[in-house]
Nucleic acid binder design. Structure first.
Lengths: 357, 357
DNA sequence: TTGAAAGCGGTACCAA
DNA sequence: TTGGTACCGCTTTCAA
C-alpha cells in the first residue's frame, strides 16, 4: 500500500484516519473518495472505476474486493466528479412561461415521466414574466445536456444563441426557429371545426377572447377560427384582448362584453379564460348557452365540471414527445435535419355551447 | 505568452487556432476554457477567475482586459468545472409521489418560484409508484445541495439515509423523521370543523373515502373527523377504501355506495375523489346535497366549478415554505434543532354539502 | 488485467 | 495586484 501523494500534500490537518475510514465532520460522512476506496482495496483508482462501472477486464476476484471496500466505506461516486470527467450533466431542462393553471403542469409532468425513463434528471424553470428570463434561461442551458423551451418564454434570439452554443434544443408550442426540432398541437384545423360547429348551431356573430400576438398557439386558433367562418361567409369575429390568461382576465372581459351587444358565442383562447367568462356571465344572470355560447381550449379538469365545450390537447403527450425528441438529439441519433411533430387535437362538445343531448 | 503545457500535451490533433480563437467542431463553439481566456488576455487563470467573480484586488485595467477577452472569445464558465471546484451543485431537488392532479403541481411550482429567487436551480422527480423510487431518490440526492421530500414517496429509512449522508432535507406533508425539518398543512382541526359543519346541517351518518394508512395527511383528516364526531356523540364514520386517489377511484366508490344505504354525507380525502363521487352520484340521479352531501379536500380549481365543499390548502405556500426552510438549512443558518411549520387550512362551504344561501 | 498519470474546467492558496 | 499551482473527484488512455 503506497503513500498517496495527494493526501500527503493536503494542506488541512485532518490526515486520513488509520485504516482508511472515512473522515467525519460534525458527525456527517464527508467525501469518501475513489482514492479512499482504492487504498482500502489495495488497487488503483482506475481499477475501482472499472469495477464500479462494470467494465470488462477486471478479475472477478478484484471486482469483489473493490465492491467490498465500496460497501464498507459506503462510497458513492460524486456526481460532481463524474460529470466533469464525462463532460456531461446527465440532466435536461424544461422552460415554461408561468405557473398559471393546469396546462403547463401537465406538459412538464409528461416530460418528466419520459425523461426519467431515459435516465435523465429534469431541471425546471418558470420564467413567469420575470425580467431576468433571458439570463435564467441561459444559465439553465449551461447546466443541462439539452433543453425544451415552451411558448412565450424567451425571444428567438435567445433560442438561437442557445442552439448556437451547441446545446440541443426542442421547441414546444412555439414556432420553429432555424434548424430546431419542435413539437406542437394542431390548432388551425380544429379551430375550423369549432367554428363550423358553432355555425351549425346557428351562431354566426362570434367574439374571440385572446391576443393572437401573445402566443403562437393563440395566433393559430384565431386564424383557424377566422378561416372556418370565412368559408361559410360568416362575419369575422370580434376581437377581445384579455389582460392575462387566467380566470380573472376572463371575468373582466365578460363584464366588458355585457356592457355591449352580446355575441352569439364567445370563443376563448384557453379554458381558464373561458371559465372566467362563463362564471361571470352566469353570475350576471345570463343564460349560457341559450343567450350566448362559451368555448375554451385545452380541456383541463375544471372544464368537465363546468360543462365547458373545449378542444382537447394531449398535454402529457406534448411533454413526452419533446422529451423523446430531445433525447434523440442529444444522443445524436437524429440526422441534422430539424424534425417537427404535430399532435392532433379534438373538439369536445359539452353544454356551454348549446343543448346537444 | 508562455506555452500552455496542457494544450501541448493534448492528445487530439486540433491545436488551438492561431490568435487564440475558439476551436470549432461542426460549426459549434466547443469549450472555450478559462485557460484560453487567460492566454488571450495575457494573464493567469487565477486573474481571470478573480475578474469574472468580481473579486477585489484586480486592477480596473486588468479587469477590462480580461472582460474584453471573455467577450471576444464568448467565454462562459463551465458549470461542470465550477461545481466541482466549489463542491456544490447550486441546485435543489423536490420529490413528489405522482402526477395525479393539481395538488402536487401547485406545490412544486410554489417551490420553484422561491428556489429560483434564492438562486438555486430546481430538479424534480416524480416517483409515481415506480418500483425504482428508492434508487431514483438516492440518485437525485447526489445531484443536489438539498432535497424536499413529499408525502408518500419513499420510506423513512430512505429519508434517514439521505439525512445521514449529509444532504440537507425538508419533509413536506410527511411526518417528521429524526431531526429533519418539515412543513405541512393543518389537518386535524379543520377536519373537526368540517365534521361540526355537517352535524350542524343534521348529517350524522358519515362515510369517509380514503385510506388513512396511505398518507399521513389522510390519516390526520380521518382522525380529526372522528374526533369531531365523537365530541358530538355522533357515530364513527364508515370507512371506504378507494383504489387510488383520482376521479375514477371516487366513481367506483360511489357505485359501491349506491348498492347499500346512502350515508348522510360522504367526506372524501381529496377533491379528485370527491369530484368522482359527485359526478357518479349525480349521473345516477341522486340529488346532492339533498339526499347526500359530498365534501373534498384541497380546493383545486375544478372544485369551484363543481360547487364542491372542501378545505383549502395553501398549496403554493407549502412549496414556498419548504424552499425557504431548505435554503436556510443549506446555508447552515439554522440551528441544528429541527424546525416544523404548520400552515393553516380553511373550510370552504359550497353547494355540495347543503343549501347555504 | 492492472497501474500511473493526464486530463475534465474551474477556484483559491501561497508566494512573489 | 498577480502568477504558479495544487487541488475538487472521477474517467480513461497508455504502458507495463
Amino acid at each position: 500500500m503506497q503513500e498517496d501523494p495527494v493526501r500527503v500534500a493536503h494542506p488541512s490537518g485532518d490526515a486520513p484516519a488509520i485504516g482508511g475510514r472515512a473522515r467525519r465532520r460534525a458527525g456527517v460522512v464527508d467525501g469518501v473518495t475513489i482514492r479512499d476506496v482504492a487504498r482500502h482495496a489495495g488497487v488503483s483508482t482506475a481499477t475501482v472505476s472499472r469495477a464500479l462501472r462494470g467494465h470488462q477486464n477486471v478479475t472477478a476476484a478484484t471486482r469483489e474486493r473493490v465492491l467490498a471496500s465500496v460497501r464498507e466505506l459506503r462510497f458513492t461516486p460524486s456526481r460532481l466528479g463524474v460529470n466533469l470527467a464525462e463532460r456531461r450533466h446527465a440532466a435536461n431542462g424544461i422552460v415554461f412561461p408561468d405557473l398559471s393553471g393546469p396546462y403547463f403542469a401537465e406538459v412538464v409532468l409528461g416530460y418528466e415521466e419520459v425523461a426519467a425513463e431515459l435516465g435523465r434528471s429534469v431541471l425546471i424553470l418558470s420564467t413567469q414574466g420575470r425580467d431576468a428570463a433571458r439570463e435564467r434561461v441561459m444559465e439553465l442551458a449551461g447546466r443541462v445536456d439539452g433543453l425544451v423551451v415552451l411558448g412565450r418564454t424567451v425571444s428567438d434570439d435567445v433560442v438561437l444563441e442557445i442552439a448556437d452554443r451547441g446545446t440541443p434544443l426542442v421547441l414546444l408550442a412555439r414556432p420553429t426557429v432555424g434548424p430546431v426540432d419542435s413539437v406542437k398541437a394542431e390548432n388551425v384545423h380544429t379551430a375550423g371545426v369549432l367554428a363550423q360547429h358553432l355555425l351549425d348551431d346557428g351562431r354566426r356573430r362570434l367574439a374571440f377572447v385572446g391576443d393572437p400576438d401573445s402566443t403562437p398557439d393563440i395566433a393559430e386558433r384565431w386564424q383557424g377560427l377566422c378561416a372556418g367562418l370565412a368559408e361559410a361567409d360568416a362575419p369575422r369575429p370580434q376581437q377581445l384582448m384579455p389582460a392575462g390568461f387566467g380566470e380573472d382576465a376572463g371575468a373582466e372581459v365578460a363584464r366588458d362584453l355585457m356592457d355591449r351587444d352580446l355575441p352569439d358565442a364567445v370563443v376563448c383562447a384557453n379554458d381558464e379564460l373561458a371559465l372566467g367568462v362563463l362564471a361571470e356571465l352566469r353570475a350576471a344572470g345570463i343564460d349560457v348557452p341559450r343567450q350566448v355560447a362559451v368555448t375554451g381550449w385545452d380541456d383541463v379538469m375544471a372544464a368537465r365540471y363546468a360543462g365547458l365545450t373545449t378542444v382537447r390537447q394531449p398535454m402529457r403527450e406534448l411533454g413526452a414527445s419533446a422529451a423523446r425528441l430531445l433525447d434523440a438529439r442529444i444522443a445524436g441519433r437524429r440526422s441534422t435535419r430539424a424534425r417537427q411533430e404535430l399532435l392532433p387535437t379534438q373538439l369536445v362538445v359539452r353544454t356551454s355551447c348549446g343543448n346537444h343531448e
